[in-house]
Computed example of a mutant assay.
Amino acid sequence: MRDVARLAEVSIGTASKAMNAGGRLRQETREKVMRVAKEIGYRPNDLAQSLHRSRSRTVGILTNDSFGRFSFPIIQALEERLADHGIAVFMCNATDDPARERQHIDQLLGKRIDGLVVTARRSDERPAILVGGIPVIYVFSQADDPDALCLLPDDEGGAVLAVEHLIGLGRRRIAHVTGPERFEAVRLRHRGYQRALERAGLGGGHFLTGDWSEQWGREAVAQLFSGKGETPDALFCGNDQIARGAAEALRDRGIAVPKDVAIVGFDNWLVMAEAARPPLTSIDMNLPALGREAGERLLAMIAGERVTGVKRLPCTLVVRQSSDPDRSENSRLETKAK
């Protein structure tokens, strides 16, 4: 800073104000100081500044989603929102190991982070992280603490949107093929499925649970189309892998999709949905919107605002040819926010 002040022919105090966007300085003075600093390669001491202002301008992100299918869209949007305020992020992967998670938390706290974001590959409840002194937000994750802030997709509303779409197409025998019931998302989507059927006076339908896999989608079709009883004219699947497996199994049986059986998946995972034959109609959980919302809430909490509770953000229905044969472009419908 002394070198910058000397070369810019100003006092150290003026140079400091210019570098930190503070004080009342003439614009030409501020620009001269910044130009000199750039020319000599001056970089502020972030650690010293963080000690001075009691803020590090960094945020920790803790995840167990090694694959990144759900966490990366959230983190990317979150990072973009925080970058607008000059805040950087440190991301750590705990891989479902409590000891490793604790180690990462200790390391992040040692870096004097201003806040912590916890995300995961599933939205089920987990033990709360107790750090004290800094805000914590759970995104696509939730804590067993009523005072925690948890941001989640509206799984139940997304299921209602999917089933009402199928009903609107004239489908009346709608089966629900999904993942293991131990997942909260499965239970919420099943509840939305039942609610939409009841509204339309269509009864209970078929509900099959299995793995989150294409193979389970094929096996479910074998069960539903075994020749025993009335067969479905539509499938609402718990994710796009199941939906893609079901579509392949129906094609192998000579059953046309969507003419004979319409299909709606969940997640709108583009590598699955767009590569399927035909391309899959699917529920999009709008993960980037979760990330942006997390960024907004975290900034407010860092500034001292107290925010708690569970907030579920709207899902969107993306319509493709697996439910609508005449669909040439993606069409999006949104659930109501809860």
Rank of each mutant, 00 (worst) to 15 (best):
V89N: 06
V89M: 03
F90T: 13
F90L: 10
F90R: 10
F90H: 09
M91V: 15
M91K: 09
M91H: 07
M91S: 11
M91E: 06
M91G: 04
M91N: 04
C92N: 14
C92I: 08
C92K: 10
C92Q: 09
C92P: 04
N93R: 04
A94W: 00
A94F: 03
A94N: 10
T95V: 10
T95R: 15
T95A: 13
T95W: 12
D96G: 05
D96M: 08
D96I: 09
D96V: 04
D96E: 14
D96R: 10
D97Y: 00
D97C: 11
D97P: 04
D97K: 05
D97M: 04
P98Y: 02
P98I: 02
P98N: 05
A99L: 11
A99W: 04
A99R: 09
A99N: 12
R100P: 01
R100D: 09
R100H: 07
R100K: 13
R100T: 08
E101V: 01
E101G: 01
E101N: 07
E101I: 02
E101T: 07
E101A: 02
E101F: 00
E101W: 04
R102W: 01
R102Q: 15
R102M: 05
Q103K: 12
Q103T: 13
Q103E: 15
Q103L: 03
H104T: 02
H104C: 07
H104I: 03
H104L: 02
I105Y: 00
I105L: 01
I105G: 00
I105H: 00
I105V: 11
D106Y: 04
D106W: 02
D106A: 12
D106I: 00
D106H: 01
D106V: 06
Q107K: 09
Q107D: 11
Q107E: 12
Q107L: 14
Q107H: 13
Q107Y: 11
L108C: 12
L108T: 13
L108P: 13
L108S: 10
L108M: 15
L109Q: 11
L109C: 07
G110R: 03
G110A: 12
G110L: 04
G110M: 09
G110E: 06
G110T: 02
K111C: 08
K111R: 15
K111Y: 14
K111H: 07
R112V: 02
R112A: 06
R112M: 06
R112P: 02
R112C: 02
R112D: 01
I113V: 14
I113A: 12
I113C: 11
I113Y: 10
I113N: 08
D114K: 03
D114L: 06
D114E: 05
D114R: 02
G115W: 03
G115V: 07
G115P: 10
G115K: 05
G115H: 08
L116D: 10
L116W: 07
L116F: 14
L116R: 12
L116E: 12
L116I: 12
V117F: 05
V117I: 14
V117E: 01
V117M: 14
V117R: 02
V117W: 00
V118E: 01
V118N: 04
V118A: 01
V118W: 00
V118T: 03
V118R: 01
T119G: 08
T119K: 11
T119W: 06
T119F: 03
A120G: 13
A120K: 12
A120V: 14
A120E: 14
R121W: 13
R121V: 14
R121F: 15
R121S: 13
R122C: 11
R122Y: 14
R122W: 08
